[in-house]
């Protein structure tokens, strides 16, 4: 499982980085989206993978840390997801404004090369 999980992160990162380096703003925003999936998965993975150990305390398992998944990366990722949405929105609006002002959707604000 770990191998597949790492591979998934790798593929998402690779696609994201590739898109980040492209010249069109929409490509960059898609790249950021994919990269944020990868980063969220990466942070989440830092708590190690655990099946069936939802960090919700129940009577059966008591409060034994060994029986639960690490909650700290989860809490971090949860806020990261929400903030990721906010930055995507901000970036989208900035790119739209830039497109309106400069007449192009190139990240540099001018057509260098297609």
């Amino acid at each position: 499982m770990e191998f597949v999980y790492a591979l998934a992160i790798g593929v998402l990162t690779g696609s994201g980085v590739w898109l980040l380096l492209r010249p069109r703003t929409f490509q960059v925003i898609m790249g950021l989206t994919l990269l944020s999936y990868a980063v969220n998965l990466f942070i989440f993975g830092m708590g190690r993978l655990a099946v069936g150990r939802v960090p919700i305390i129940d009577a059966l398992r008591q409060a034994d840390p060994a029986r639960y998944d690490d909650p700290v990366p989860q809490a971090l990722v949860l806020t990261a997801i929400v903030i990721g949405f906010a930055t995507t929105a901000l970036f989208l609006v900035v790119l739209l404004a830039s497109r309106g002002l400069t007449g192009t959707d190139h990240v540099e604000g001018e057509e260098l090369e297609p």
Partner: peptide, 15 residues
Amino acid sequence: VLALIAGTGVAALSY
């Protein structure tokens, strides 16, 4: 090439 390196690197690191 850069994207491949980045992807491989992050995958290896997380693994």
